[in-house]
Simulated assay, not measured.
Amino acid sequence: MPAKSPPPKAPKASAQRRKSLYRPENAALLASFRELRVAAKLSQQAFADRLGSNQSFVSAVEQGVVRLDVLQVRDWCQAAGVSMQAWLKVFEAMLEAHAALRSDGEGSER
């Protein structure tokens, strides 16, 4: 039986292919989750009760320690009393604000 050749190496991640965890947009995502909870005027514990979870889970999500899948994002929105469409509008606005801040910062570093 011939020896198996090693699998091809994966290409190095370019700036465009960085893991989303390390992209600046991730900060806006985390902020949007926290903003939903704060706008609903809920403590982390009260929000966790609505999710059927615990306070440490809510904290971990808001800090980016735990990542949510799309169904969990839907649950998060429902616990906050907003639709996913409404959350997405807020998230897109936060992305635009973060992008504007980054572009302003690049111009002022002369």
Rank of each mutant, 00 (worst) to 15 (best):
Met1Asp: 03
Met1Thr: 12
Ala3Lys: 06
Ala3Val: 09
Ala3Glu: 09
Lys4Glu: 12
Pro7Phe: 00
Pro7Asp: 10
Pro8Trp: 06
Lys9Cys: 00
Pro11His: 02
Pro11Leu: 11
Pro11Glu: 05
Ala15Met: 05
Gln16Tyr: 02
Arg17Thr: 11
Lys19Met: 00
Lys19Pro: 04
Ser20Asn: 01
Ser20Glu: 00
Leu21Met: 02
Tyr22Leu: 11
Arg23Ile: 00
Ala28Ser: 03
Ala28Leu: 05
Ala28Asn: 09
Leu29Tyr: 03
Leu30Val: 10
Leu30Gln: 04
Ser32His: 03
Phe33His: 14
Phe33Met: 13
Phe33Pro: 08
Arg34Met: 07
Glu35Cys: 10
Leu36Tyr: 01
Leu36Phe: 02
Val38Phe: 01
Val38His: 04
Ala40His: 01
Ala40Asp: 06
Lys41Arg: 07
Leu42Thr: 01
Ser43Tyr: 02
Gln44Ala: 09
Asp49Tyr: 00
Arg50Asp: 09
Gly52Val: 04
Gly52Phe: 02
Asn54Met: 01
Ser56Thr: 14
Phe57Ile: 11
Val58Gln: 10
Ser59Thr: 08
Ser59Cys: 12
Ser59Ala: 11
Ala60Lys: 12
Val61Ser: 09
Glu62Met: 12
Glu62Leu: 05
Val66Ala: 11
Arg67Trp: 04
Arg67Ile: 13
Gln72Trp: 07
Arg74Met: 11
Asp75Gln: 15
Asp75Asn: 15
Asp75Lys: 15
Cys77Ile: 08
Ala79Phe: 10
Ala79Asp: 14
Ala80His: 12
Gly81Glu: 04
Met84Trp: 02
Met84Phe: 05
Met84Tyr: 06
Gln85Phe: 09
Ala86Trp: 12
Lys89Cys: 07
Val90Ser: 12
Val90Tyr: 01
Val90Cys: 12
Glu92Phe: 14
Ala93Ser: 09
Ala93His: 09
Ala99His: 05
Ala99Val: 03
Leu101Gln: 14
Leu101Arg: 14
Leu101Tyr: 12
Arg102His: 06
Glu106Asp: 11
Gly107Gln: 14
Ser108His: 02
Glu109Gly: 09
Arg110Phe: 15
Arg110Ser: 15
